[in-house]
Structure formats: structure tokens, C-alpha cells
Design a binder for these strands. Structure first.
Lengths: 219, 219
DNA sequence: ACCTGAACACCGTTCAAGT
DNA sequence: ACCTGAACACCGTTCAAGT
């Protein structure tokens, strides 16, 4: 199906995101992308230096979808909450592309909008530069890590008795109980966790920590 | 250089880790790995179902290097600190392979040793099952995210004026100041951050949060 | 059971050539 | 400036054949 339309950096990234949504990052090839755009793979190189640049472009596209709440009348905690939950929602909606949002930082103005919104809310609340940078980093780390856990079905894999794909040394329940009794004990509780609930727990823990530690705490 | 030695799941994973340490994950191919082992790529398939299984095996190898402190006489906070710092150190020592440690959960007994140690320390301190699972998840999220930020030189890229590889729409300092003034303001503080210092800040924040929230707090 | 070589169906990217 | 087709140097994995 050759889509005929002027080639654009934007259109290429959008089509790439579509392909990734359907087939995953490994399912994206320059050849397939070219075909989907109604041209050859080589025409893409007019707009992006290489495949990695395309992937970075896809990341910008996703990050642009994150809410950037104006902070009028909102507590800084509430602004941060909205951004964090929106970030998580966007990454789940493009779950195949989520690793790109983790790997490539926002660089375009659209992709940076939510960062600006967050920084402004913290500034208003009286955080100094270092505290803002520090809070941003801690929140970024937490959201990246959360995504990583939620993406791979991290615990689903961990709970499976067998080492995935390894043909020997599968972990029998017996050896588990013997050598790793506490792991065996806690496993059910890990399996019972709800992603959203645990995300909230950690997020509120961090927000409370900010309030305790930064000078701006009470505002 | 054909290394002649009996082929083993373990030896294959070790050689794969060596290759990744040198050339990165993309630098690992089944063909090169086979050559390094003194055979063909195909002989590897006797021990691993596919390339992904090899990567999961490499992850187990790395995770086995993480310290698993015995909790005798140690405060639970101190046990967690040692594990977290060791995890970080191991991933930095195998920085090219670090994404594997994030992607593949520990499944072999050796790789699970540090998890067992951590769980045991929390159990001793009086944490119930749910609190242990919850703490583990929060700490895992934080360490994964930290790694992701430290790995890609996340802020280094973010600080560069240009969107990497995109040929248009590079972000000029002027448009930055105009549309993203707070981002422009905070950028220097982000560039000044020290990885280890920020890691400690977030880790201690989380540990304090655990003490506040779990019933076992004071012990 | 373990290893092999040839073959299949792909890749990203370069380059010379076209408009 | 933008697009193209052929070519280069690779991939992971299957399969039939060997020991």
C-alpha cells in the first residue's frame, strides 16, 4: 500500500511509531519503513542520518504526548503526580516503543513541554535549582525503572520456574526452598502486586521525601 | 584464535559477556561468538535455544557478581545499601551489558543470592511479606532507572543543543530561552550532578520512606 | 548427543546514478 | 535537493548431514 504524500521528518517518525506499535522495535526495518511510506528505504536517509536517529525521533513523538499541566493554582505535588501518571500512561499506550522513551531524552520543544511544566511547578513552590535537578533525576529514575519492570513482565518471568531458554539448570521448586527459602516465601506476594498500586506507593514515597528534605517542604 | 575447551553453557555465556564488554550488545553475533569459542555459531544452539537465551544467560552471570551480604549483626538499611551499591558497581563494570541486567530477572540460584540476602534482612527487621515485595520493587525500579540515566549519558545528550541525528529542528538556545525558560535555567544544575551523589540521595530517601511507612520502622 | 556447512530470508548503509 | 537500484558486508536460524 504505497502511501503518497510528501516525505517529512515528522511523517517518517509517525509511520515508524506505527510500525513499532504493531511489530515491536525489532520489527522496524528501514526497508519496511520505506515501503510503508511508499518509497525506498534510502529516501529516509535524506531526513535522518541513520536508523538510530529515526528511533530518537520516535521517542520525541511519544514524549510530546505527555501532559504538561499549567501550574495555576495547583500544588506542586499535584503537578508532579499528573506528569508522572501521564508519562506512565503514554508509555503503556506505546508499550513496544517505551524503551525509546527511556533511552532518548526529550530534545525537541514539544517533547520538553512536560519537563518545563514540572520544573516551573517546583520553582514556584520555592525549590532551588539544585533541588529541582535532583528531584527531576529521582523521578526520572523511578519512572524509567517502573517502566522496565512493567514492560517485560519482569516478575512474570521471574516467577516462572525455568530459566528462560537455558536448557539445563532450570530452577526446581525443591532447590528453591532449600537454598533460597526467603525468595520462595516472598514470590507469591510479588505475583500479587498490582502495577498501578505499586507505582503510586513509590511515587508518594518520593514526594514525601522531597517535602521532608527540600527547604520548600511545606508550601 | 580458536580456543579449544569443552563447550559449556557457562563458558558460552562467559565468552558472550567478554564480547559484549568489548564490542557492546550489538557487537555480539552468534557467528562471532562461535568463532571466539573455536567453533561454529551453530554449535551454540545445542546449549541455548536462541540468541535471546544467550543474553539471558549473560544477565545471570552479571547478577551473580552482586554482593550478598550475610545479615549477621547488620542493620537492614546497611544490608540494602551494600546490595544496591554493589549492584550499581557491577553494572558499571559491565556497562555494555547493563541493559541485560535490567531486562532479565535473576533466575539461577547464584543470580538470586543477593535477592535472598536482601529479603532475609528485611524479614529479620520485621517486614511482612507484602512490605518486602513492595520494598524490593521500589528498590529495583530505582536502580534500573538510575542505571538507565547513568548509562546513556542521559543528561549529556539532553544538554547537547542539537537533537541527535535529526537534520532539522535543532534546538537553538534562543528558542530554548523563549519557550522553555525553566528548562534553560535548570540545565546547568543537571550538568553539574555527580552520579554517585545523586544515587545516594535517592537511595537514602527511599530507605527513609520505608522506615516511615512499614510497621518495622524503628528496629 | 554433539557439531558442521550450506542455504534461506533477511538486515543497515554506501555509492553512483538519476531527476 | 531529493530519490533510486544495485551492491557490500553482514545478520539469526533451519535443515540435512556427519560423528
Amino acid at each position: 500500500m504505497p502511501e503518497r504524500e510528501k516525505l517529512t521528518e515528522r511523517r517518517i517518525a509517525e509511520e515508524a511509531l506505527g510500525l513499532i506499535d504493531e511489530d515491536g522495535i525489532d520489527g522496524l526495518s528501514m526497508r519496511k519503513l520505506g515501503q510503508r511510506l511508499g518509497t525506498t528505504s534510502m529516501s529516509i536517509y535524506t531526513y535522518f542520518t541513520d536508523k538510530e536517529a529515526v528511533l530518537a525521533g520516535v521517542a520525541q513523538l511519544i514524549l510530546s504526548e505527555v501532559d504538561a499541566p499549567s501550574d495555576e493554582g495547583l500544588d506542586w505535588r499535584e503537578v508532579v503526580r499528573r506528569i508522572m501518571w501521564s508519562y506512565r500512561e503514554v508509555c503503556h499506550r506505546h508499550i513496544n516503543a517505551a524503551p525509546l522513551a527511556i533511552k532518548y531524552p526529550p530534545t525537541t520543544p514539544d517533547a520538553l513541554a512536560f519537563v518545563e511544566a514540572g520544573f516551573r511547578a517546583l520553582r514556584r513552590a520555592g525549590f532551588d535549582d539544585q533541588s529541582i535537578a535532583r528531584s527531576y533525576r529521582a523521578l526520572a529514575a523511578y519512572s524509567f525503572g517502573t517502566l522496565a519492570i512493567e514492560m517485560n513482565g519482569y516478575y512474570a518471568t521471574a516467577s516462572a520456574a525455568a530459566a528462560p531458554g537455558a536448557r539445563r539448570e532450570t530452577l526446581h521448586a525443591a532447590t528453591l526452598d532449600k537454598h533460597l527459602p526467603t525468595v520462595a516465601e516472598i514470590r507469591p506476594s510479588l505475583a500479587e502486586q498490582h502495577d498501578a498500586e505499586e507505582f503510586e506507593y513509590g511515587l508518594e514515597l518520593i514526594l514525601t521525601g522531597f517535602a521532608d528534605i527540600t527547604a520548600a517542604g511545606g508550601s
